[in-house]
Design a protein around this nucleic acid. Structure first.
Lengths: 252, 252
DNA sequence: AGCTTTCATTGACACAGATCAACTGAGAAC
DNA sequence: GTTCTCAGTTGATCTGTGTCAATGAAAGCT
């Protein structure tokens, strides 16, 4: 998840939406030129450093936003400290909920992060006035609900090994589609998560994550250079480890 | 989840929406009289018996629908038979997804079920034309996403005992709010799920569900008459077993 | 009544993953 | 160069839940 080199807006939102790398995938995807201009009026950019907290559960949220680059996560923590990640926001994903002031989850930048923000109130007004935004948001929310449901299958029924393989497949897929990478010689990418964040995503402990990464490496399903750089020599071999149906959608 | 006694439409949709028990909670909640009339034109009622399958994953869905009474569930099954429930649809919940022909999950009536159906194509047209429907659907979908995320915490991090208590609390809450029941002397309700369905919801085996029900009974957190009728003598005692924050929203 | 089917309970044992703990390697700070 | 810290790995052991199997109880059928 590298920050794209050709999109470096200043803090004032002075960058043209037409050059935006997520222009055709984010909430604004369906907007016509005039609608886009209205969004452009109320947008501003913000960046967060890896590890920085964007909001605590219970905080007031003054904005909603689209992720431009980097990764953010939503998580819930129980009183005794048990933590479960409940959302992983990759570029083009939408952060926040119109019509709600209070964040129900902790929101953290897990890598360096750039987001395109809209103050909540003006955005809500625009949502009422501009059907294309609401329609796209509905579509994205339904997609997220589908993803949440696959995630529920993972949490409830998959083995530790299947969980790891599934997570790697999800990130590899998103990464490949974003970068239009060919997968003839396998795929490479940087894991945007620590072992602990992976554990929180998968409902495991970090020790189990580490052990399963090691066994997948020993089984030649993955190759590691350093701790975070991963190569998948054979995508089908990885898919076979996820427990999902053979061809649950081709990569890309 | 009893079928309301005063709403017995024939199969032709000849019942007036104004008498509908879910009129102000379902997708149609925000509709004005004229918008409601348009929905009324394309609606029809269907009933399913307990255990009946509404669709298999991969089936073509010709309609979307609102649950009027009873309970339906969405579940995913892996090739080797492991099953995870990923959605529990109670009265007023919406079934199906506009813009998608193919059901991604198995859909089953877990109790006797009555639904208010709309053929998909006309409903999609109405969705484009009637902002109030799209707005309400967005709101409901966002709520479902929140519920899915709480469910993820349950699946990933809660113990078997906490899982059971959480499920009972969810059903008790929905039931109480539907029936305006006072909870001064505890709450009673009929479990609309078999032990196996509970296990599929919670990511457990049915044996573990049965054991934990027994231990909660022995701890006087719940009382059982027959297998399915449950009384919660002290709602706070149940809440304390869920692992959630003390006052995660008062019942009702 | 007797039989079958379905749903639920309970017991004995196994095992995947958690827990507790020691250790490694790579930076960063001094 | 030395020390400290942080992320990750690996080992030993424990335990909650799964697995396999027997039994019970209620409902429907002939």
């Amino acid at each position: 998840m590298t920050i794209s080199m050709d999109f470096r807006p200043g803090p004032l939102g002075d960058q043209d939406c037409r050059d935006c790398p997520i222009r055709h995938r984010a909430v604004c995807a369906r907007c016509e030129a005039d609608e886009l201009a209205q969004l452009e009026d109320i947008k501003f950019y913000r960046t967060f450093e890896a590890g920085q907290r964007i909001a605590w559960a219970g905080d007031r949220m003054e904005f909603v936003a689209s992720v431009i680059s980097g990764v953010a996560s939503l998580s819930q923590t129980m009183e005794d400290g048990r933590t479960q990640m409940v959302g992983l926001l990759l570029p083009s994903d939408f952060l926040g909920r119109p019509g709600r002031e209070i964040a129900p989850f902790d929101i953290v930048a897990t890598t360096d992060l750039m987001v395109c923000c809209f103050r909540r109130k003006p955005f809500e007004a625009l949502l009422e006035a501009t059907p294309h935004i609401g329609q796209r948001l509905l579509e994205m929310t339904l997609d997220e609900l589908d993803a949440a449901r696959e995630w529920m299958l993972l949490l409830g029924r998959k083995t530790a090994r299947e969980k790891i393989a599934s997570l790697l497949a999800i990130i590899a897929r998103r990464n490949a589609s974003l970068q239009q990478q060919s997968m003839d010689n396998g795929l490479s990418f940087d894991l945007p998560l620590t072992r602990e964040a992976m554990a929180d995503y998968l409902g495991l402990t970090l020790e189990t994550v580490s052990r399963q990464m090691s066994t997948l490496k020993r089984a030649d399903v993955i190759e590691l250079s350093g701790k975070r750089t991963i190569r998948i020599p054979d995508v089908h071999a990885l898919m076979a480890e996820t427990g999902d149906d053979a061809d649950g959608g081709v990569l890309a």
